[in-house]
């Protein structure tokens, strides 16, 4: 039984930085979390996916006019690459609160410290080994996409 569980939790690739190992410098994260370049097309999809990142729940993005119902809780993401560096964007996606203190924006690459965390949107309690909302590569994909957003 335990063996089966361990086998399911695929070990992170050797170069991958786990959520607790991420080094923030004034909110920014200089080092890639995976060492593998992000895929901007995958990042574009993630941004508007309901299931995981769902960034458009709070952000409008003119570059994705086909995505219905974009929220306005946060600022529009248009041209965001001209306002922030790659390291800053990685830090904002991984843990926005280290850039914007007290932000309502969720921390997407963080484990532990949650109050009554659930198992996704089921309402059931989270498993003890609850991972971050996004994988390291998903963060890199999003960052790669955000970097394409410039005038």
């Amino acid at each position: 039984m335990l063996g089966a569980v361990a086998a399911c939790l695929a070990a992170p690739a050797a170069a991958e930085i786990t959520p607790t190992e991420v080094r923030f410098d004034n909110g920014a994260v200089a080092q890639s979390l995976t060492g593998v370049p992000g895929d901007p097309a995958a990042g574009a999809k993630l941004l508007s996916s309901r299931a995981d990142a769902n960034c458009v729940a709070c952000h409008m993005i003119a570059a994705q006019p086909d995505v219905a119902f974009q929220g306005d809780v946060g600022p529009a993401l248009d041209d965001v690459a001209s306002r922030y560096s790659e390291a800053q964007l990685r830090g904002i996606v991984a843990n926005s609160k280290l850039t914007f203190a007290g932000s309502v924006m969720p921390s997407f690459y963080k484990v532990g410290g949650h109050v009554r965390p659930g198992d996704g949107f089921t309402g059931n309690p989270a498993p003890a080994d609850l991972g971050p909302i996004l994988s390291a590569q998903q963060v890199e994909d999003l960052v790669a996409y955000l970097l394409t957003l410039k005038p």
Partner: peptide, 28 residues
């Protein structure tokens, strides 16, 4: 005012700070 869940959002985050805004298709 407690921020619950993995998204760390309190009732106040949505209904006090952001009342009137859109969160995806929903008008808060």
């Amino acid at each position: 005012y407690t921020r619950y869940g993995q998204l760390e959002l309190s009732c106040a985050n949505c209904h006090e700070q952001n009342a009137g805004k859109m969160i995806r298709a929903d008008h808060l």
